[in-house]
């Protein structure tokens, strides 16, 4: 009787136990950690899309307003397990001889860095950055970032500014308004 059970049923019973061990100690931790890069890619995708949208604004002040009042992206990321904080917007201007100027927030661009200025600026790139707390699937304490608690990383996206016109009324570049 014992020989019969060993020969035909042992595989099933052992497989069930092995399956539990496999799921608990291999699959579950793998999925738990594996969700982090997936959420990272989602957050980066949403941020890039938002940046492409923001650079289409008429004025830089409008771009800043659009970025700071953007709630849809934040709520989408929150639902996907990504907490967004410390959102910053800036502008990077590339001039002659690879010189670079970084403008934070609504600071005006110096006249020599404007199109036609002495620095012969050619690229105006709007950059946005946020701190993202990307959570794994299961969270416990004490937290091990990436494994049992969210891992915080700074995500950035940039896109070239679209509107290079001058406001006829104020005579200022739209990128500087």
């Amino acid at each position: 009787m014992r020989a019969v059970r060993r020969k035909s049923g042992h595989a099933i019973s052992e497989f069930a136990a092995a399956l539990i061990v496999l799921v608990t100690f291999v699959f579950a931790p793998l999925i738990n950690v594996g969700i982090v890069p997936i959420r990272y890619l989602m957050a980066q995708g949403v941020l890039t899309e938002l940046c492409h949208r923001v650079v289409l604004s008429e004025r830089r002040s409008e771009a800043i307003s659009l970025f700071t009042n953007e709630l849809w992206s934040k709520s989408v990321l929150q639902k996907c397990g990504v907490e967004v904080s410390n959102a910053k917007i800036g502008l990077t201007v590339l001039g002659k001889d690879n010189s670079k100027l970084s403008i934070v927030g609504a600071e005006p661009i110096p006249s020599e860095w404007l199109p036609g200025g002495s620095m012969e600026a050619s690229v105006f790139s709007l950059e946005i950055s946020v701190d993202c707390a990307i959570a794994p699937l299961f969270q416990t304490s004490p937290g091990l970032p990436g494994f049992t608690s969210p891992v915080v990383m700074k995500l950035k996206a940039s896109s070239p500014w679209e509107n290079f016109g001058i406001d006829p009324v104020s005579q200022e570049y739209f990128v500087n308004e």
């Binding site: 036609g116 679209e162 006829p168």
Partner: peptide, 14 residues
């Protein structure tokens, strides 16, 4: 409008 000899090119808008 063209201002200070700078004519705005065609561009994508929101």
């Amino acid at each position: 409008a063209t201002v200070k000899n700078s004519t705005p090119p065609a561009r994508i808008i929101l």
